[in-house]
Structures are given as structure tokens and as C-alpha cells.
Design a protein around this nucleic acid. Structure first.
Lengths: 236, 236
DNA sequence: TTTCAATAATTGGTTAACCACTTAGAATTC
DNA sequence: GAATTCTAAGTGGTTAACCAATTATTGAAA
């Protein structure tokens, strides 16, 4: 067993090495769905890393649905097949940290859909929550305060009302990074904020009236400026 | 300090309790972005749970970008503001496990976009990978073998070529669950698999020829059957 | 009083030992 | 010989002690 004193970058690349080795092991031993991997202790000895490192690598592969740990029993190959496993690990290993453009592009895609779905599926309770978020936003903007948070809460209220928990989860994942980047690149100045009040109201009304086409259309208009802006941002 | 012996359900609900308590604490102490939370040891004593439980709750909030742990220093409120923090924790606590319908709906949304973007951004190397996946799929189907894995690898090859790492990540997250559900509900019988060969080829050609409209259109047709099927599945 | 070096306390992260549980196989019984 | 019980080894998970780095405190020097 090796002692490891690493910074976060070294740690990440070590984890990638371990994941690659796990894949090699699965291939060499011809492990199929349901088969058991060697124990964490054995793997840590075989790969000459600490058990913690093994555990974190396994947890990452578990997050992506490729492995399944069962307490007091073992870690098993998930029910998805060796070929898909190999392809997916390839992809996971080469995944890059998302850049701003990629985040915004994905956000717009999701929001056009959640607006449409929300207009079809929203409950009365959803509507109340959206109205609260809408008013909180208007109030702050009219008070000349920064309202990036209230802005995004309105959008998250729509995501919640869309009746699709996967999209809701994805919106939650990208929102904090969007906020951070908005602050970094100074998106959302006063001018945009003022006009956004009316845009929000129109989106809200379309969802209230259960008009999916209109909801999507109004969301699209709302993003028009943002979209243009983000494609001009030069990242470092 | 309490000893905890819990199954996975109890563990999850305990974690939710801890997350809710962290939110309460942030509100009561009026912590703002950049402020430091009490140490893990203090929190574990205050909330009467083990330090592991605290760490896992913090890691979850870190995953959603709400907190940031810095080694040998402390855990800090992320740069997103108290209001957004409260709203997001609300959402995180009420997040449901995604059902099949929600997964398919999201998949189709993502794939129509990745096909379009891939046709605009694919490199020659991307094209080669797609062709390999395409051929592997055809070969298996014509051999009357189940080819669910090869099918999804073709779609993942498109996702990789779309030049958007966020969408690529999201595709990777939902793919294993899609595969599992496909097997569970016996989607993709022989009939569908045969016609899918040509549909895949048409999608591939559209991306090769860099025709975004056509790529999206062909992907839409490819999903037509699947879409209809999934909306008829009665989940437990 | 101010400055700055030395030191003590505190931090998140790591690890070796431990835990409850599972599992496989030996031992026992019929 | 087959079925069942018992035992011991092995499993992922948990935890208390430990680690290096940071931060706060002290106190002497200027």
C-alpha cells in the first residue's frame, strides 16, 4: 500500500488511471453483467493505490450506472453489457469541464422544453410558486437591486412545474455554474433586467393559460439577448 | 456523537434532514457567499450525527454548487447568494427518482439537439468513431443478436461529436438507466432493430454532409416509434 | 503601539482498525 | 448421500485517530 499526498489535479488524474485499470480488468477477466469485481482491498493492492482512491473511482462509475456496490457483499458489473461499458468509460475519461457556452446552450435547450411542458402540466401550487418568484424578481429590479438569484429562481420554478424530474435535476446542476459565470462576465446589467420583468410575466401568463406554443415562444424571446451575448464571450 | 446503523433509505432521509438543518443554520446565522460554515466536527455534534453523515451531506451540496470545501481551511458558502441557496435546497430536497418517461423525454430532447450540433461541429475523427459504432450495430442486428448496447454507443458517439460537454455528460448520465429500462420493458424488438439500421445510416449521412436540419429530422423519425411506445408504458 | 516571527489550535482529508452482514464450505445430523 | 446447521473467512461501510496545511494567538522586539 502506497501513501498518497496529492493535490486535487493529481488526485483527479490518479482516479482516471484507476478507472482505466478497472476497465482493463473487466475486459481481461471477461466480466459480464452481474459478475463480481475483486474486493476493494485486493484492487488497492493490485493497483498500488489506497483503498480510498479505489472507493472514489468505484463511486464515480456507480454514479454513471456502470457498477453497483452492495454492502457486505461486493461490487458488481451493472446490467448494461461489456461493450456499452467500454464505450462509456472511454467517454467518461475524456469528459471535459463544461465551459460557459456549453452551459448556456444546454440551459436554453432545457428551458424551452420545461416552459412548454410546464404549460401543459403545471398544478395550481406550481403556479403560486412561480408567481412568488416573479414578484420577488420584479420588486428587486424596480428597487435597482441585483436580482440574478431571483431571476434564476423563477426559471427553476418553471423547471419544477414541468413534471420531468430528469430535466429538473439537470437544471439544478447547471444553475449554480450559470450564476457564477453571469457574475464573472457581468451578464444581466440593468437594461436587460428591466425588460426581463415583462418577459417573465409573459412566460408566466402563457403557462397559466396552458398555451405551450406561446410559452416556448416567449421563453425564446427572453433568451434572445442572452444567446447573442454568450456567443460573443471570449473565454480564457 | 451518535452511532448510526441504517439501511440505505434511512440513510437518504437522514441526509435530507442534515441538508435541511444546514440550510436553517445558514439562514439563522445570516451566512453570505464566502462565509465559513462551522467545522464538520462541530456540525456533527450540533446535529447529533456522525461526521461521515455531515461530510456526505456537504458533498451533495458541493455537487450542486452550493458549498465549497477547502482542505485544511473550512467549508464555505458558494458565490450564489442566500436566496438562490434556499430555493435550490428546497428543490434538491424534493427531487424524485427519475421515471422511465422522464428519461426518454429528456433523451429525445437532448438527441435532437446533439444530432443537429454534431452535423455542424463534428471532426473527421468523430465521423470515424460514428461509422465504427454504426457498423458494429448493423453487424449484430443482421446476425440476429441483441444490439441495445451498440445502438446506444452510436448515439453516444453523436453526443461526443456535438461539441457540448454538458450535453455529453447528461447523455452519459441517462444512458445506463435507459438501457436498464429498455431491458425491463422489452423495448427494441427485432422489427424495430432492423428498421433502425437504415435510420442510423441516414442520421450518419446527414451529419457527414453537415446538414443540421436533415440530421435533426432523421433523428426525430428514428425516435417516432420509441416515443409512441414509451408513452404507453404503464409503470409500477 | 505596531510588527512580525513563533507557536498552538483548528481545519478538511486520509487511513488503519473495526463493524455488521454475507457467503461459502466444513461439519453434523438424519 | 442429502439436507441442514455451524463456523470462519471475506465483504463494503464506518469510525476514531492521525496528517499536513491553515489560521488564530501569543509575545517579544522595535
Amino acid at each position: 500500500m502506497k501513501i498518497e499526498i496529492l493535490n486535487s489535479n493529481e488526485k483527479r488524474s490518479l482516479q482516471k488511471e484507476v478507472i482505466a485499470k478497472v476497465r482493463t480488468l473487466i475486459n481481461e477477466k471477461n466480466l459480464e453483467p452481474g459478475d463480481k469485481l475483486p474486493s476493494e482491498r485486493m484492487l488497492s493492492e493490485k493497483f498500488e493505490v489506497t483503498r480510498s482512491t479505489i472507493r472514489e473511482a468505484i463511486q464515480k462509475l456507480e454514479f454513471y450506472g456502470l457498477l453497483k456496490s452492495i454492502p457486505q457483499s461486493g461490487t458488481f458489473v451493472a446490467n448494461i453489457g461489456v461493450i456499452a461499458m467500454n464505450g462509456m468509460i472511454d467517454d467518461i475519461l475524456r469528459l471535459e469541464v463544461p465551459n460557459f457556452k456549453s452551459l448556456v446552450e444546454t440551459r436554453i435547450l432545457l428551458e424551452l422544453k420545461t416552459a412548454r411542458l410546464a404549460s401543459l402540466r403545471r398544478t395550481d401550487e406550481d403556479l403560486i410558486k412561480m408567481k412568488e418568484a416573479l414578484d420577488a424578481y420584479s420588486k428587486k429590479v424596480l428597487n435597482n437591486e441585483i436580482a440574478v438569484q431571483e431571476d434564476l429562481l423563477f426559471h427553476l420554478a418553471i423547471a419544477r412545474a414541468c413534471g420531468n424530474s430528469t430535466m429538473n435535476t439537470f437544471m439544478l446542476i447547471i444553475t449554480p455554474e450559470i450564476i457564477t459565470n453571469f457574475k464573472k462576465y457581468h451578464v444581466c446589467d440593468d437594461q436587460l433586467a428591466y425588460s426581463a420583468i415583462n418577459e417573465h410575466k409573459q412566460i408566466y401568463n402563457a403557462i397559466k393559460e396552458q398555451n405551450p406554443q406561446l410559452a416556448k415562444q416567449k421563453m425564446k424571446e427572453h433568451f434572445k439577448e442572452l444567446y447573442r451575448y454568450c456567443y460573443n464571450v471570449n473565454e480564457i
